[in-house]
């Protein structure tokens, strides 16, 4: 179970990337995603779902996420969310 201890971000706003900003939230408030995407109509729900699933897979129930998506494929979205989680949990991964 990962515990978020501070706000953190990962990714960029370059094409094919996504900038993920992640912050801890009070227990019981759930995962709140605010998403900006040029393909909101077609893929908005998919991206939102992928972000939430990735957080849940890491054992996170409560968090505030702002994501600025620029045409990222799924593998990038997953990777950026996971990096943001590790950073917010106080690990740098090295």
């Amino acid at each position: 179970m990962t515990r978020l201890v501070r706000p953190a971000q990962a990714g960029t706003i370059e094409s094919s990337d996504i900038l993920v900003m992640l912050a801890p939230a009070d227990e019981g408030t759930g995962i709140q995603v605010e998403l900006k995407s040029p393909t909101m109509q077609q893929y908005g729900e998919h991206i939102r779902g992928l972000i939430i699933r990735t957080l849940q897979e890491q054992g996170i129930q409560d968090a505030i996420i702002h994501a600025n998506e620029k045409g990222a494929l799924d593998y990038t979205i997953k990777a950026r969310v996971k990096t943001a989680i590790r950073r917010a949990a106080g690990q740098r991964g090295f």
Partner: peptide
């Protein structure tokens, strides 16, 4: 370094 490692892994 951490974000590149994660991205390459998923790619």
């Amino acid at each position: 370094k951490d974000s590149a490692r994660e991205l390459v892994y998923h790619a």
